[in-house]
Design a protein around this nucleic acid. Sequence first.
DNA 1: GGCCAGGGGATTA
DNA 2: TAATCCCATGGC
Length: 300
Amino acid sequence: MGRLVFEGLRDFSLKQIFECGQCFRWNPEPDGSYTGVVGKSIANIKSLQVSEKEGPGSRGECDGSLAIEITTSEDAPDSVFWRNYLDLDRNYSAAKEKLTASDTVIARAVSHGGGIRILQQDAWETLISFIISQNSNIPRIMRCIESLCRAFGEKLGNYKGKDYYSFPKPEVLANLSQDDISCIRLGYRAPYILGSAKKAVSDGGEKLESIEKLPCDEALEYLMTFPGVGPKVASCVLLFGGRHFESFPVDVWVRRVMNRLYGFDEDDIKGMRRFAGEHFGELGGIAQQYLFYYVRETEK
DNA sequence: GGCCAGGGGATTA
DNA sequence: TAATCCCATGGC
């Protein structure tokens, strides 16, 4: 049991961070806080002393403080962990200025999701989560991951009336059969999950975590050696679980928004990637999240 | 490179 | 009830 407070935050919106599609295990509480599982800990994150910004260029993001309540003690993540996980030490104001300076188009997207931050999640959990995400929708992705954790994770405890479970380790999933996981209803993704778990085990535990130390293109190639992982899933893992901020995942929503805002043909995925690399550079991942959040807000 | 099956579930026709 | 869509990939 512990409580951490982070003060003096800018460009920060819990709703945008947890509902922009980068994570699937943070659930909103009636009081506006979010509860989720990190490692073996249940955590509740709440905004304090919120002052909403006004005027053009900001919608919903806040300056203020953040309180994190951690309800399990075993290996409880400390403040260093949380600063990294929530990407608190990155200057998003500077990133927004850089993105919008030479591009009036993305300014529209930034003005809708200016409180987004890229979470620094666990690579293994991110890998499996985005294999599950393929050709699906966010509510179902969240249900599948929840079922997987409930069935094969460790029970961590109860918080505000709900039970929470850890994300199952590679060794656990690697030893399951198709029959074992048929109850999760993952469809054709099930053999991908088992195959990727087996590969993660045989490659060794540290190998997946090492993608953040590899050059972006090498890490992408390595991730694509996992069954069920193509360029889209791999680039999501690079961004959300591998600290590669230049990664620009192109999914159906990004194809849509690149068509609406920049006039790309929706099938010109290569063109979009090239454009992102040249135009957004090392901020590609942050730009992608602003664009994704914007198109989902405006075309629901 | 193009095409299409893989499962399942929600939404729309 | 049927068709379509959904944060794609793999195999042909």
